[in-house]
Design a binder for these strands. Structure first.
Length: 422
RNA sequence: CGGGGAGUAGCGCAGUUGGCUAGCGCACCGCGUUUGGGACGCGGGGGUCGCAGGUUCGAGUCCUGUCUCCCCGACCA
């Protein structure tokens, strides 16, 4: 893509609404366009990152046997009334009506819909286990959206569901998801820890969260080095309570005399052992080996895709801009032409494109400084500069975004060199 | 939902005790000069000052109401 053709405008100044560095850079780099609190239009670069994350997630989940489905974003309230959650006064649940005054809810999660659909499929223990999932919009009427992409009212989320006959089968699948999630976060370049968490309004017998440790994360984590829990789970919620006697007692109950430390984190994934919380009231049953009706045991597994984008930037940036991990960067190469180097840059752009390289080409007639500043802000892994200076050596200059050195590579070898990065 | 802050051009901001044609920087358009770290000159375009009502000869400025956005907290599948 050429800069001059792209739906892109970067800004030098930081929009005043942005406090967090990820929010600032994503706005300045034109990755997102705000529309309302917590609701953004994903611009081309933002879309490309989301797309890459999506593909990585799909690959890893298909590898453990998850089958793709699509759950409605506009959901009839009937199953929600069956499960009881419709009446539970969940503030985040966005309730709407159609023109005939019938009740619907927007997709806060998909448990009810999956349980409902599963009734068409499951009748015997021989039908279990089953794994289904999707990557689709979620809508939650959050009391307070914040931090750019870190807490949204509408967002893309991967949510998968397991249907099993008993706890043993659930445990086995639960562990598969933990392993798959670890691979996903590793591939997108985010370091996470798995912690024990509260089940919240999801209900069920257990839950874990994947936390990216970050100073400005919303969640508080208590860890003794071998085991970590969400502070919420052991009844600690306020920051200033952490050193208090009450908090110390709660820590002791959970950790004994072990030395603990407090950390903050961003929750990028969350998994639940739902048990029969949905299957019982919604009557999702199967017939066991002894011809007895049993409720299906469910689990659910989610990753916030948009939040992950924000988290990656929080974790990977410098004072000039973002630093995208190769696997999720909008483009691999940021090509810059300077002065009389433009002609050759045009040619190189076509060559790279023809070779299947994801290359973004700054073909604008603006000063070199502006192009370099944009390249730093946008943060693609490799910058290639073609200028009279490099052409005098019959070469181009390569700079890796997260390293200081630059080096010259001859024009004859540059395409092959770039291909070796793919 | 409680507390705090803010709405003036796409973005960042100024606008005195109410006063004349509402300004500045960036961005944008035209011409020219520039070309390795956000260049320069000259000339331009763009505003119902969040919205509604009120006070006044006169409101961006004062009063009332209302909407929206941001930050802290509560909450958080």
């Amino acid at each position: 893509m050429k800069y001059s053709n792209s739906f892109l405008r970067t800004t030098k100044e930081t929009p005043k609404e942005a406090e967090l560095i990820s929010h600032q850079y994503l706005l300045r780099g034109g990755f997102i366009a705000p529309t309302a609190a917590g609701i953004y239009t994903l611009m081309p670069f933002g879309y490309r990152v989301a797309d890459k994350i999506t593909k990585i997630i799909e690959e890893e989940l298909r590898a453990i046997g998850v089958e793709d489905i699509r759950i409605p974003v506009v959901q009839t309230a009937r199953p929600w009334k069956e499960s009881g959650r419709y009446y539970e006064d969940i503030d985040e649940l966005w309730k709407i009506k159609n023109r005939s005054d019938e009740d619907f809810v927007l997709a806060m999660t998909g448990e009810e819909m999956v349980a409902d659909a599963a009734k068409r499929v499951i009748s015997s223990y021989k039908d279990l286990p089953k794994l289904v999932g999707q990557i689709n919009l979620k809508v939650r009427d959050e009391a307070r959206a914040r931090g750019g992409l870190l807490r949204l009212r509408e967002f893309m989320m991967q949510d998968a569901y397991s249907l099993t006959k008993d706890e043993a089968q659930l445990d086995e699948i639960y562990q598969k998801f933990i392993d798959a999630y670890k691979k996903i976060f590793e591939r997108v370049g985010v370091q996470t820890v798995v912690i024990e968490s509260d089940t919240g309004s999801m209900g069920g017998s257990g839950a874990h969260e994947f936390m990216m440790i970050a100073e400005n994360g919303e969640d508080k984590i208590v860890s003794d080095g071998t085991r970590a829990v969400n502070a919420e789970k052991i009844g600690i919620s306020k920051e200033d309570e952490l050193d208090g006697a009450e908090a110390q007692t709660k820590v002791k109950e959970s950790f004994g005399d072990a030395q603990v430390e407090f950390m903050r984190g961003i929750e990028v994934g969350n998994i639940f052992k739902l048990g029969t919380k949905y299957s019982k009231p919604q009557k999702l049953m199967y017939l066991d080996e002894n011809n007895q009706q049993q409720p299906v045991i469910m689990g659910s597994y989610g990753i916030g895709v948009d939040r992950l984008i924000g988290s990656i930037v929080e974790a990977s940036h410098d004072d000039k801009g973002m630093i995208w991990p190769k696997n999720v960067s909008p483009y691999l190469v940021h090509l810059i032409g300077i002065g009389d180097g433009m002609q050759s840059a045009n040619g190189l752009y076509e060559q790279l494109k023809d070779s299947g390289v994801e290359v973004f080409y700054d073909d604008r007639d603006v000063s070199p400084g502006e192009k370099f500043a944009d390249a730093d802000l946008l943060g693609f892994p490799y910058r290639i500069t073609v200028s009279p200076k490099t052409l005098a050596e019959n070469s181009v200059e390569i700079k890796v975004r997260n390293a200081d050195e630059m080096k010259l590579v001859s024009l004859d070898e540059i395409v092959e060199t770039v291909k070796s990065w793919m």
